[in-house]
Structure formats: structure tokens, C-alpha cells
Design a protein around this nucleic acid. Structure first.
Lengths: 166, 166
DNA sequence: TCAAGATAGTTGAGCAATCAACTACCCGCA
DNA sequence: TGCGGGTAGTTGATTGCTCAACTATCTTGA
């Protein structure tokens, strides 16, 4: 702990309802991603993490994205992305190409095999997302969840930027 | 893929709003847990995972819980819990004791050092949960989030039980 | 124009998680 | 009473992740 650490005297603890909601959030997300990951591992050609990577590439122009952009979108460390792309490249799902205009840069490109794996995984993936999330909530809850999590994401993102400039 | 696999012909894809909300959820949870984990790693004596384990023990009678109960509450595989408890036991945060009445069973007990680590971590933990979640949402959003995630958790839990009986 | 610092990505060692196989014990039933 | 199947937990090999150090390139400003 450093000299800026918070001591128990000036902490605003959570009240009953906040505590309850936070625990439901923690438990719900754990079980949701567990179940969704299980579906990928048991039935689909790519893991959940690989799937999200392929989705990002599929929506990028030329099915191509810089490593750094991919890392930012997927909330992965650069190192972890390097290792993940290594493995996917060995399986022929993506390829690395030098980035034009910046000789430090590396583009990650989805191959046809990668696209095929994405297409093959999508139905099972979406069906699971429905079963564990979308079909469980009504439209209003789903919309609220989206708005709330957009706020949460930007709070966390703000913090990330601060940490980077230390 | 097996013979029960869903083909693209009969999948109900997500509409615009559902897609948007689902992506906010995915991105928000990733960034939230990333930021909260960073706070633990940088400033607190125990990691986020260890913290949650200690919280469970702190609320159990005798600060004691069966390994299997702990695994269920924390949504951890038994193997992963075994390894995690190994490490925490080496650091003196918890102890293993035989479970009375079932000679297969093992109780995990929080030590005084474990309780001290929990107390030392709590202020920083709660402050971070506020910064990245609770203080970012208003009371209504927070309540909705709790209700929604309670539903999601039980959908996922239901699925888990089915998988177990195959 | 060139030095200092920032950015992009990789590397490899050490640590943590996963998966299947294993031991030990409990329960129900014949 | 003992056998079959289930439950509790551990083990160790494999795989994946993390962290700090490293190379290479880009940018800025004196």
C-alpha cells in the first residue's frame, strides 16, 4: 500500500441494495461467461476469445487490423495478443503482414479459413448468447443493460488512460 | 459439430439494439474487471480472485467452507480451486482441515492472517468498485442491473446442472 | 539533424489454468 | 456385505497468461 491508500475511516461502504446488485453482477457475469465458454469449447471450432478476435477482423476493411487496434478493442495486453495470434496463425486462421506506412506495425489479416471458422461458429455462438442473456431479459432490461455498461466501460477506459501517463 | 448443431438457416440473429447492448455488455465487463484487477495487483495485498474467496469465508460460520461449496460460489473448477488454495495456504491466508462427518471432504478455513489481508484490501477494493461501477450508475440503473444479472445467473446455472447429468 | 522519449510488437521465463486420470470415500440396493 | 455408481478432492502434464526486458521504428523539439 502506498501513501495514497484509502483507510477504513474514509471509505464509503456499499449499502444493502448496492451490495446486492454488485454481487448479482459478479455472479451473473461469472456464470454467463463460463456457460458461453463451455458452449464454444464443446461445440464450436474456435474458443470464445478467438471468436471475438475474428469478429473484429470480419468488420474491418480488408478483414485487416493493426495488432494494437485489436488489443485495444479486445481489452488484451499486447503480449497476450501476440501469443494468441501466434497460435491462430499456426492454425491458419489469421496471417501477419507488415503494416504499410509504419515499419514497426503489424497487420493481422483474417484468412478464408478464419472466415469459414467464424461462419461455422456464429450460429452456435448467437444461440448461446440468446439462451444465456438476450432471451432471458426483456427489451427494456436489455436496453438498460447496454446503457449502463456503456457508462461502466467509459469509466474504466478513462482510468486506463490515466494509468498510462504515469 | 454434432448432429444437434444449429445451422445458419434456423438461427435467430440479434437485431440492431440487441447487438448493441450485448457488445456494450461484453466490452463493459472486460474493461471493468480489467480495471478492478489492476487496482488489486497494484495496490492491494490480495488479487481479485483471492479477495472473493476470502469474502466467502469471512461470511461463513467459523470462517470455514467446504472446498466444493467454495468452488460452487466462486464459479471455479475443483481443480483450479485446489491450486488456488494451495498457493494461499503457502502464504498462510487459509488452512485445510478435514471435514467432520465426511472423510472425503476438506474444509477451507480463513486464518487470522487471511482475515487481516481481507481487512487491508477491503477499502481499496470497495473504492474501486464504486469508481468503476456503483458511482457510475444511478440507483435505478444499479437495481436493474442486479435484477437482470440475477436472471442471467439462473439461466446459466440451469444450464450447468443439465450438463452435469449427461 | 540528431538525441530523447514515445510507440509497436516480440520474446522467454515463470506462474497460473485446464484437462483427464486418479485415490478415496459415501450411498443405495440386492 | 459387498458391489456399482456417484461425489470430493488431488495430481501432474500441457497449455496459456503475465511480466519485464528487448529490438526497432517513429516523433518531437532544440
Amino acid at each position: 500500500m502506498n501513501d495514497k491508500s484509502v483507510t477504513s475511516d474514509d471509505v464509503r461502504w456499499l449499502d444493502e441494495q448496492q451490495q446486492w446488485a454488485w454481487r448479482r453482477f459478479l455472479d451473473g457475469t461469472s456464470r454467463f461467461f463460463e456457460s458461453l465458454g463451455d458452449v464454444h469449447d464443446a461445440e464450436l471450432p474456435v474458443t470464445l476469445g478467438e471468436y471475438h478476435l475474428l469478429v473484429q477482423l470480419s468488420e474491418a476493411p480488408g478483414r485487416t487490423l493493426r495488432m494494437s487496434a485489436l488489443a485495444e478493442y479486445l481489452v488484451l495486453s499486447r503480449s497476450r495478443l501476440t501469443h494468441t495470434v501466434d497460435r491462430m496463425e499456426r492454425r491458419g486462421l489469421v496471417e501477419r503482414r507488415p503494416a504499410p506506412g509504419d515499419r514497426r506495425g503489424v497487420n493481422c489479416v483474417m484468412t478464408d479459413a478464419g472466415f469459414a471458422a467464424l461462419v461455422a461458429s456464429a450460429p452456435g455462438h448467437v444461440t448461446a448468447v440468446r439462451r444465456f442473456l438476450v432471451d432471458v431479459l426483456d427489451d427494456e432490461e436489455m436496453a438498460m443493460l447496454g446503457r449502463a455498461m456503456a457508462k461502466v466501460a467509459s469509466a474504466a477506459r478513462g482510468e486506463q488512460e490515466l494509468a498510462g501517463h504515469e
